Computed example of a mutant assay.
Amino acid sequence: MKRHSLACILPPDLLVSLARDATHEQRLALLQALNVDSSFRQARAETAARLVAPVRLALAAAGGTPRRFIYDQQHSQSPTPGTLVRHEGDPPTADASVNAAYDGFGATYSLYWDVFQRDSIDDQGMPIAALVHYGTAFDNAFWDGQGHMFFGDGDGRILTDTTRGMDVIGHELTHGVTQHTANLVYSGESGALNESISDVFGSLVKQYHLGQTAAQADWLIGADIVGPLLKPALRSMTAPGTANKHDNQPADMTHFVQTTSDNGGVHTNSGIPNRAFAVTAITIGGSAWLAPGTIWYETLNDPRLKPNSTFAGFAALTLKNARTRYGATSPEADAVRAGWDAVKVPVQ
């Protein structure tokens, strides 16, 4: 049972798909990314194996200010932080990647604190570290489960500078939030829920920062970091399977993908709960971080949510939480049901 695997924004299946049509030079870069992916997955699995139950911590006594540390890896692939170049309260530097990582961490902290009163990843003011310029033209960004987010500069064709993706940063840091709340097993449907929750809150980070309504948002993940081979985005929450020519996400349970790769298709089948959230948010209208975000956040923190939850189990809890907070016959509860109905997940 895998509590956590390495949380990369580009999954291994996509890297393999890209390698099939890549030039020799591009294939070398993709193999490098896959090699790093494999090494970090093993290290993280060993750490995660020691987590035998969800970590649910009490609300910290004080909060409201992030604790950010930005390190320059100078193209090293070392898993330990390099040179500290900016920390909390420091002015911007001459390095745009450093500043973008700092701002993305701040935007993620702001969503969780302002809207959900959560003090950082562990709700106890946990410091968060960015390791920018990781590797040479490295095509990925990932969270290692131990307080570090690694940012590749991209090769310009597959990905560009990954620090530019505010939703990508929100996605990766949310893997840490999930680790400290529901601790969803990173395999099968529970793993796809894990990935979906990161996409949901990653999108909300971007929407909150830009002040967008659900109707105004593009609901695309990674649109700001993809190169020409993956345009226009990595994933679409409203139309799974249409984000780029390699996108094979299903849009409903009828097309659920049965596979043994990528921990049982965690990045593929996440399109189903992604669409359920987007439909819910658009149906309710207004700011998606308010009622829809609150329902999903309360479900993530609900003690009834099991680490091996299925889509149907998660869906049932979202409806229960919507009814409890907003009323059994409220528009919010009706919208939650409409969201899951749209993806053919039965909900009672």
Rank of each mutant, 00 (worst) to 15 (best):
G202C: 10
F201I: 12
A192F: 06
T213F: 08
D218I: 08
I197K: 08
E195P: 05
L210C: 12
V205G: 02
A214V: 13
Q212H: 13
A217R: 02
D218Y: 10
V200E: 14
L204M: 06
E195M: 12
A223V: 08
A233N: 02
E189C: 11
G222A: 07
S198V: 02
Q216G: 11
F201S: 10
A217P: 02
S203C: 09
R235H: 14
I197M: 13
Y208I: 03
N194T: 09
A223Y: 06
G191D: 09
F201Y: 14
G227E: 06
V205D: 01
S203Y: 04
I221S: 07
P232C: 01
D218H: 14
K206D: 06
L193Y: 06
V200Q: 15
I225H: 04
G191H: 11
V200H: 15
S196Q: 08
Q207C: 08
G211L: 14
P228A: 02
I197N: 09
L230G: 01
Q212K: 12
S203E: 08
S198A: 14
I221A: 08
L230M: 04
G202E: 03
P228K: 03
V205F: 05
L229N: 06
K206F: 07
W219V: 13
L210M: 13
A223I: 09
Q212C: 09
T213N: 05
R235W: 08
E195Q: 13
Q212V: 05
K206E: 09
L210Y: 14
E195N: 12
A215Q: 15
P228S: 04
Q207L: 02
W219M: 11
E189D: 13
I197P: 07
A233M: 01
S190N: 11
N194H: 15
L234S: 03
D218M: 11
E189H: 14
L229R: 10
R235I: 03
A214W: 15
I197W: 09
V200D: 11
A192P: 07
L234A: 08
V200L: 15
V205S: 02
S198F: 01
L204P: 00
A215W: 07
E195D: 11
I197H: 11
N194M: 13
L230T: 00
S196A: 14
L193N: 08
T213V: 03
L193R: 05
V226S: 02
K231I: 00
G211N: 15
D199N: 15
T213W: 04
P232I: 00
A215R: 13
L193M: 12
T213G: 04
G202T: 08
K206N: 06
A214H: 15
V200Y: 14
P232V: 01
K231C: 05
H209P: 00
W219D: 11
L204W: 01
L234R: 09
V226G: 00
S203W: 06
G222I: 09
K206L: 11
E195A: 10
S198L: 01
K206A: 06
N194Y: 14
Q216N: 12
P232R: 04
G211E: 15
D199A: 06
G222P: 02
D224K: 11
S190V: 10
L220E: 01
S196Y: 05
Q216C: 09
Y208K: 12
P232K: 04
Q207G: 08
D224Y: 01
I221M: 13
R235T: 10
A215L: 09
T213C: 03
Q216A: 15
V226C: 02
